[in-house]
Design a binder for these strands. Structure first.
Lengths: 122, 122
DNA sequence: TGTATATTTGAACAATCATTCAAATGAATT
DNA sequence: AATTCATTTGAATGATTGTTCAAATATACA
C-alpha cells in the first residue's frame, strides 16, 4: 500500500503503524459532537476581544458602550461579539431603557480562565 | 459629543456612561500581553483537529500516521497542526528512526479540558 | 411629534487559517 | 547506491472570521 492508492480515499486510509493502539485510542475519544462542543467554547475564549469582554464582565455588569471603553474597542465590534457569546449562553443581558447591561451567565468560565492563568503564571 | 466627532478617533473615544465603573473595571483586567497569551492557548484548543490531537495524545503517545488514523485526518494536516502545538509547548516529540512519536508536554491542559467537559455534562 | 442616543444589524473588506497537493528531507532496508 | 517510507514543508486554495461603516431599531425626553 502506498500514497498513490490512498489518493482514491484521501482521508480515512493512511498507513497505520500500530492498529491496536489506534483502535484503543479511538475508543477513548469523546464523541464527535462533544468534541465540537468543547472546541466551540474554547474557540470563543480564543479571540482577544471576546476574552477581554468576558474578563471585564467577570468584574462588573456593563453596558455596551462602557464595555467598549473598557476594552478599547468600538461599540459595533463589541456588539457583534456579544451576540456570539450570548448565543452560546456564556453571557446574558438585561434591558433598562435604551441601555443593555451585560453580565456573565456561565460561572464555570471564570474557573476555566483562572485555572489557565494560574498555570501560565507558574 | 456624537458619533460624527468620534469618526476622527474611531476607537478609544466612545460615549461613556459610568466613568468610575469603566476605570475600576479596566484596572482589574490582566495586562494586554497576558490576555493575548491566554487567548492564544484557548485558540489552539478551539480547533476540532487540534483538540482531537490533544485528546488522543492524552490517551497515548502516537506517531504521526497513527494520530492521523485516530482522528480521521491526513498525515499532512496533522503534521501542520502538530507544529503549532509544539511551538506553544503543549506537546513534545521524540524521534525513533523514521518515526516521530508525539506526546503531551503540558499536563495542565488535560485538567483544563476535563473541567470544561464536566461542566458541559451537567 | 421630533430629536438624541444606545444598541443592533447587514454588507463589504481584509486578514487569518485549515487543508490539500506536491515536493523535499531523512532514515532504514535491500 | 537505490528504494521505500514516515515526516516535514511551502505554496495555493477556499473558507472562516473580526472589524468597519452605514443604516435601522428602539427607547427616552423635550
Amino acid at each position: 500500500m502506498n500514497y498513490i492508492m490512498n489518493k482514491l480515499a484521501p482521508v480515512c486510509e493512511v498507513q497505520i503503524i500500530d492498529r491496536v493502539k489506534v483502535k484503543k485510542t479511538k475508543a477513548k475519544l469523546p464523541h464527535s459532537d462533544e468534541t465540537s462542543q468543547i472546541a466551540g467554547i474554547f474557540k470563543l475564549l480564543g479571540d482577544p476581544t471576546r476574552l477581554k469582554i468576558i474578563l471585564a464582565l467577570i468584574e462588573n455588569e456593563l453596558c455596551v458602550c462602557d464595555l467598549a471603553a473598557v476594552i478599547n474597542s468600538t461599540v459595533s465590534a463589541v456588539s457583534h461579539q456579544l451576540r456570539l457569546l450570548k448565543s452560546e449562553k456564556l453571557i446574558k443581558f438585561r434591558k433598562d431603557g435604551k441601555m443593555a447591561y451585560y453580565s456573565i451567565d456561565d460561572n464555570h468560565i471564570k474557573n476555566l480562565i483562572d485555572q489557565l492563568r494560574e498555570h501560565l503564571n507558574e
